[in-house]
Write a protein that binds this DNA or RNA. Structure first.
Lengths: 221, 221
DNA sequence: GGGAATATTCCC
DNA sequence: GGGAATATTCCC
């Protein structure tokens, strides 16, 4: 095995200790070389772990195996003796095979690849979102002031129109006399009725001022 | 020393081993109890470090001290013998004083306080910003459709008013005859002139249509 | 099986 | 002195 500088210590240690023929009795390759076996966990923990690592906990060893993508091989109580508690433990990784140390370099740690990228993306996205939100906010202010202008102008226009009508009615002049089409045509359609047709046809004079007043209130407040 | 569950193992170990009177010969409090001394680095590394930690490197011990905010005390060659290479090493922390174990809880790791919070804030803020941006976007759509409504209605009203004026002028009726005050009073003030006074006073009839046409174009497109 | 805190190593 | 990778522990 060529010890590349970018090969994690855990992997080279694992390879070394599974290759070590002195411990084949309780830690060795499986028959077909596709996985490795811990045949005696007690001896493995006491005799091997402290020799290669800074601990003697099976859990920490397994945590590292999981960190590098190894999977426990399940023995579904077939022909294996004493399965209950301290039976043999088997681990497997598609790039950890007997006689194929050239595959080892494909084994990657799960933290080294994922965590840093997420943080970088988080920072970039944060910047993008903030600047985008600021632009929307600025545009919103522009729109709101434009809206306020239009609202005010609209109120004034309604007032104008109503005063025109009042003036004409006071002069006993028929409003729609010389007109070919309705006075208020909404460009976007039917939602609002034609105010003046409505007034002239249906409203008595006493109702006219109330109608105009309500209309104005809608636009001024 | 009360071993709180939130006290890092490194700090309680450090306190224990500096308090240990058996090792006062080469690892102990300074005279005034404001700092601690490594009088014999060789013995400290070989006899103490592996007993309390999972290593025997002075560098790793110092790395942890720095991680928890301890500072090396500089001896600027005053009265101290053999300063050159393996002289005594002294470390100090404002919350690590002889006889004051109650201060220990104020010592914080530099990573445990800064890194996780940044990430948590990043996540929380991300959620807040996104939901806030969505609300702004929704409101913006409401405002824009309201604006579009008003714009259209405003155009229609200008059209109405202009047609009134045209009608009145065609009937040779003086527009401002019976009025006590200007026709177009903007509620928010002076920005826009009184259109009709302007027209009546200054515009010849030929200019009136052009003026109204421009006004309408502004609101319809 | 894996997230996250703490520890150790490596490196500037 | 401290940033960052890897290792070990603790916990769900």
């Amino acid at each position: 095995m060529k010890q590349n500088s970018n090969m994690p210590a855990f992997l080279s240690k694992l390879w070394t200790l599974v290759e070590d023929t002195h411990t084949n009795e309780f830690f060795t390759w499986s028959q077909n070389g596709q996985s490795f076996l811990v045949l005696d966990e007690q001896r493995f923990v006491k005799e091997i772990l402290p020799k290669y690592f800074k601990h003697n906990n099976m859990a920490s060893f397994v945590r590292q195996l999981n960190m590098y993508g190894f999977c426990k091989v399940l023995h579904i109580g077939s022909g294996i003796v004493k399965q209950e508690r301290d039976g043999p433990v088997e681990f497997q990784h598609s790039y950890f095979k007997q006689g194929q140390d050239d595959l080892l370099e494909n084994i990657k740690s799960k933290v080294s690849s994922s965590k840093p990228e997420e943080n970088k993306i988080c920072q970039e996205d944060l910047t993008k979102i903030i600047s985008s939100a600021q632009k929307v906010q600025i545009k919103q202010e522009t729109i709101e002031s434009r809206l306020s202008e239009l609202k005010s102008e609209n109120g004034s226009l309604w007032k104008e129109v109503s005063e025109f009508i009042v003036m004409l009615l006071q002069n006993n002049q028929p409003v729609s006399l010389k007109r070919k089409r309705p006075l208020l045509l909404n460009t976007n359609g039917a939602q609002k009725k034609n105010l003046f047709q409505h007034i002239i046809v249906k409203s008595p004079r006493s109702g006219l001022y109330m109608y105009i007043f309500i209309k104005m209130m809608n636009y001024l407040f």
